[in-house]
């Protein structure tokens, strides 16, 4: 952006000081790929958690990552979200945003949301407040000191509450929710942030069959508008949502394709799906 454009952007008349809402940069997805991961290696004390990993995620797709324990799934998410530094390789968000340059909060502000394996909601806040804190808005100190919830934001929270089915619990402390509800609230917190990419680590761990089914429906409905990357052990669940599945093994991609082709892939059968070849 040229200086003149920046100045114009700053003085736009429909934006007032401090409350200009969206602060996200433009993500260039002209080649359909939103996340480029190339030659990524991470090692912990000599153990190679990721080994020359290459992975491309298309804009709007729903991708499942599977792999045995220690295959590097969570490490991969850690690197994308800035939690773990990598030894070599590159991670690009769109054509030109280098994620390795940014810190965790900055990456979250860019539009990459993450759900953890263990549901981590803020127990001392109500469901509503949990969602309020997740909204896609300014995250600076001086802004939050005087921040008031706008009608649009409040409507957005209500919409998310409806989507995750926690309308009745909106004023309950998040700590009092059941395990499945916490998982849903955390997904809701991701939605409230309106991210471009959702990284979801084991969304159905500890859920009942019905909850699992509804989670599957929700995730499939999100794809398209958002890019969704799901890490999951539950093969039934993966089968029910997956279009493209990537199998990780020892820190590298072993196979990629539809669920059927993965299940018939001899390499995958050998290392993951069954012991006997």
């Amino acid at each position: 952006m040229s200086f003149i454009e920046q100045t114009r952007e700053f003085w736009r008349r429909d934006k007032t000081w401090f409350s200009s809402g969206q602060t996200r940069p433009y993500v260039d997805v002209s080649h359909q790929v939103i996340l480029y991961i190339e030659g990524l290696s991470v090692s912990f004390d000599g153990f190679k958690a990721l080994n020359e990993l290459n992975l491309y995620i298309n804009d709007g797709e729903l991708r499942c990552l599977i792999g045995a324990n220690g295959a590097g799934k969570t490490t991969l998410m850690d690197v994308i979200t800035g939690k773990t530094p990598c030894d070599q390789g590159s991670v690009y968000f769109g054509q030109d945003i280098n994620l390795l340059e940014h810190s965790e909060p900055k990456i979250a502000q860019l539009g990459i949301g993450r759900k953890f394996q263990k549901p981590t909601v803020f127990a001392a806040h109500t469901v509503f407040e949990n969602l309020e804190l997740s909204l896609n808005t300014h995250k600076g100190i001086w802004f939050t000191l005087v921040a008031k919830l706008s009608t649009a934001e409040s409507d957005r929270i209500d919409e998310v509450l409806r989507t995750i089915g926690l309308e009745q619990q909106r004023n309950m402390l998040a700590g009092a929710l059941s395990h499945g509800q916490k998982q849903w609230l955390e997904i809701g917190m991701l939605l409230a942030a309106e991210p471009r990419i959702l990284l979801i680590d084991e969304p159905v761990a500890g859920m009942t069959a019905q909850e699992t089914e509804r989670t599957a429906e929700l995730l499939t409905s999100l794809a398209g508008k958002h890019t969704v990357v799901v890490v999951e052990h539950d093969m039934e669940f993966v089968r029910s949502i997956a279009r493209t599945v990537t199998v990780l093994h020892q820190g590298a991609v072993l196979a990629e394709g539809s669920m059927d082709s993965i299940q018939n892939n001899p390499d995958v059968i050998e290392v993951y799906l069954g012991e006997e070849p």
Partner: peptide, 9 residues
């Protein structure tokens, strides 16, 4: 850590 992942410094 969760707060950091919500985008807060």
């Amino acid at each position: 850590s969760r707060t950091r992942f919500l985008g807060y410094m």
